[in-house]
Amino acid sequence: MKRILKNISWRSLRVWQRNYDVYLATWKVNFIPPLLEPFLYLLAFGVGLGQLVNDVTYNSTQISYLKFIGPGLIAVAIMNHGFFETTYASFVRMYYQKTFDAILSTPLTIEDVVFGELLWGATKSLFAGAIMLIVMIFFNLVSFPFSLWVLPVSFIAGMTFSSMGMCFTAIVRNIEMFNFPVFLFITPMFLFSGVFFPLSTLPLWAQYVAWFLPLTFLVSAIRAIALGIFSFNILLQLLVLIFIAFICTLLCLMMMKKRLLK
């Protein structure tokens, strides 16, 4: 473990910069979909579904359904953008484009490359979280300025989901195999982490199961922050996310090294 951490250096930023350059070169393609995403979600779930749903009790007060799911949708965007960057996008760079191989003939180590990819995945989460947040602030769905704390949380949780994604990237044999983690992991989290309904409406056993899903911690933390309710639970939930990020980062560094260098 010491050896792995020793091999990570500030040079990881070079990989981040490479991805950022590519992102800027195609910024229109990269920028428009995440910007439209919150509008679509809010339209479908908030306005469409919201007509059928009454106010929700949160922290013993009644809030509109739109206000309830808004922060949940921020969390989903953070998860998706981090996870998909280090799965599909990293896999294309690693497997089809041999970008990693090329970088490895420079002073960067494999650990630098993988960690740089994680930082970039987390940055994509941050961008996605930021765009969502701006839209929600615009529609007055979240408290301001306290909800700005969503930004650092986006980056931290971005590391969590990027590093989880990278673990899968280290083991899949072809790109179709990512369907498994998406179907078995991302979709259940999307549905059962308290994004669309309070966890308390679930039977008790299901609630316990839900607290094994990383997204549950993020949804809960972001909802409290966005609605401007500070509690120590937020810190606890963040600690869990940081812990998962740390473990998955170590794991994916080890597995990627094995995959690429044998």
């Binding site: 484009q97 041999k98 191989d101 420079t106 960067l108």
Partner: peptide, 30 residues
């Protein structure tokens, strides 16, 4: 690695970048 140059057997130029940026980004790694 900082003192050697490598031409691999398989082409691994960066298809996401232009010819110029391939060199520029590589220079940054060094």
């Amino acid at each position: 690695k900082s003192c050697i140059g490598v031409c691999p057997q398989e082409n691994n130029l960066d298809p996401d970048l232009t010819v110029w940026d391939n060199l520029r980004v590589f220079a940054r790694y060094f």
